[in-house]
């Protein structure tokens, strides 16, 4: 379970998160929607531990463990996964080597045995098939020369292999056509179950047609100003953020 209490964060003296409260129980998928500049990406970076953000107040825990006190790789080993809005290209780093190094780093941190090259390949091929990814993607450098859709699929592949308990999907729908969106959404839905929760960050309702959330939250000016069921996303789509924010004020 992800529990965020009264979270305040700033970057370069600019306050972005301003008393954010949020609980995502294990097994549930929650969506966060909000206008540009509301703090959506900041929330994902603060939770995953990117440098440059300063938390001035509040707490964030995953299954009772303090996320904010530990390094990004330790958060990952606890089960946190961030699917990047803009996946980073790593020239010279082979995708297979990257994936196996990441899996084994987490397995080691959890006291599990490491995978050898063959065991890894077997697992990777199964998941790649589900995502309609060509095996050749393993040999290529991480995200280098990948199309927008391929990059997002590669993010979902990492999620499928790393099996996080909490996935944060940061505008995973941006830059995707309908077919790619469906494949990516299917990949996320395949992870759903009693031990998986997700925080789906998006501008648009469209993604939520495919990944149907248990709860929808509206983020504005660094706080959750309204929460509701999936129907809230439809209301936002119909009325726009301005009206919902004004009504909540």
């Amino acid at each position: 379970m992800l529990e965020i209490k009264n979270l305040h964060a700033k970057i370069d003296e600019k306050v972005i998160l301003n008393g954010l409260d949020l609980v995502v129980p294990t097994g549930e998928v929650h969506a966060i929607m909000g206008p540009n500049g509301a703090g959506k990406s900041t929330l994902s970076y603060v939770l995953s531990g990117r440098a440059g953000y300063q938390v001035t107040e509040g707490t964030a825990t995953l299954d009772g463990q303090d996320l904010l006190a530990i390094a990004p790789n330790e958060r990952a080993a606890l089960g946190l996964f961030l699917a990047f809005q803009y996946p980073v290209e790593l020239p010279g780093v082979g995708n297979a080597n990257f994936l196996r190094t990441a899996m084994n780093a987490q397995r080691r941190a959890r006291g599990e045995t490491e995978l050898d090259a063959l065991q890894f390949l077997k697992l990777a091929r199964v998941e790649m098939k589900k995502l309609s990814m060509d095996d050749a993607m393993l040999k290529r450098n991480v995200n280098v020369g990948f199309s927008g859709g391929e990059k997002k699929r590669n993010e979902v592949l990492q999620m499928a292999l790393l099996k996080p308990s909490l996935a944060i999907l940061d505008e995973t729908d941006s830059g995707l056509d309908i077919d790619a969106l469906r494949i990516v959404a299917d990949g996320v839905n395949a992870q759903r179950g009693p031990n998986f929760s997700a925080l789906v960050i998006t501008h648009y309702q469209r993604l939520l047609d495919y990944i149907v959330p248990d709860r929808v939250h509206v983020l504005a000016s660094g706080r959750i100003i309204r929460s509701g069921g999936p129907e809230l996303a439809l209301e936002l789509e119909r009325d726009g953020y301005a009206q919902v924010i004004a009504a909540a004020a």
């Binding site: 531990g49 440098a51 390094a71 790789n73 790593l90 190094t101 987490q106």
Partner: peptide
């Protein structure tokens, strides 16, 4: 790039 790798569980 460093953060991307770290976010996947790889130490600095």
């Amino acid at each position: 790039q460093l953060f991307y790798l770290q976010s996947r569980g790889i130490d600095l």
